[in-house]
Amino acid sequence: MGAGAKHRLVFVDRLLATLVHLRHATTHDVLACWFGVDRSTITRAIGEVRPLLAKLGCTVSPGVRRRTLAEVVDHLGGKTGIIGGTEIRVRRPAAGRKDRDTFVSGKSRQNAVKAMVVTDADGRVLFCSPTKPGSCADITHARQLGLVKLLADGPTVEVLADAGCQGLGAQTGGRVVTPPHRKFKKNAPDCYEEMYERQRKAHSSRCIRVEHGVARLKNWRALARHLGRREHISDTVQAVAVLLSHQQTAELIPSRQV
């Protein structure tokens, strides 16, 4: 403590610069002009404040934060949660690197990273995971986060997921609910087609809330497309999720009547 160069910006200014950078993707050069400092000062400030925001944890209720997926599952005990994956485009690794194809997404065929987002039934963000390369499947990402073990050993929770997580339901005793499997690929009876479409639309109408939460995350320009270093994207995604969850919780508190 106390070592290194002294800060030319007080903590409030460093925090403000980080918030503007995350919300509007303002470049470090522009922020340096606004605050009247060198570009390296802004880079240092954002590099220090962004991890602090990422470690705070999402706000699940006024004054209550949850940092890990296990804590979020305990919070959802007896309630319904929705899990969904989202992709964020990143720069392609340099030619010659052995992991150059690791970030190519099988869905969008673009270089991207993936994050798993958990929301409640109303679409409020409760958890956002660290990112994985775009080639990682959604079901693999969920397993690596320990979701199967948490649901099998934890409280009774209903988790809605899309077709990318089909197979988790059998591993969690039916606690992960995915769209119904299609039993007939050809020559399906008319009655089955109607029933299948009705069940699929009913499930989709419940899962759409997580897409609303993801859309609110993507409204932050820093997540529209990441142009910085890929090693910083996890902190960026989680910091935005922390700020968004706090904003969504603050909107639930009724304003004081004058």
Rank of each mutant, 00 (worst) to 15 (best):
M1F: 04
M1C: 05
M1R: 07
G4M: 01
L9V: 07
A17V: 09
A17P: 08
V20K: 08
L22W: 04
L22H: 05
W34P: 00
V37H: 02
V37A: 10
R39W: 03
S40T: 12
I42H: 08
T43S: 14
A54D: 07
G63S: 06
V64T: 14
V72Q: 06
H75M: 03
G77V: 04
G78A: 07
G84K: 01
G84Y: 01
G85C: 11
A95H: 10
D101K: 11
K107S: 04
Q110A: 09
Q110H: 09
A112H: 00
V113L: 10
M116V: 08
V118D: 03
D122H: 11
C128G: 10
T131C: 15
I139A: 01
T140Q: 02
A142T: 07
L145C: 04
L147H: 07
A161K: 02
A163M: 01
G167P: 05
T172D: 08
G174H: 04
T178F: 03
T178M: 08
P179K: 12
P179D: 12
P180S: 12
R182T: 13
A188G: 03
P189V: 07
C191E: 14
R198Q: 14
C207Y: 05
E211M: 06
V214F: 00
A215H: 03
L227A: 05
R230F: 05
H232N: 12
T236H: 01
A239S: 15
V242K: 10
T249Q: 15
V258G: 15
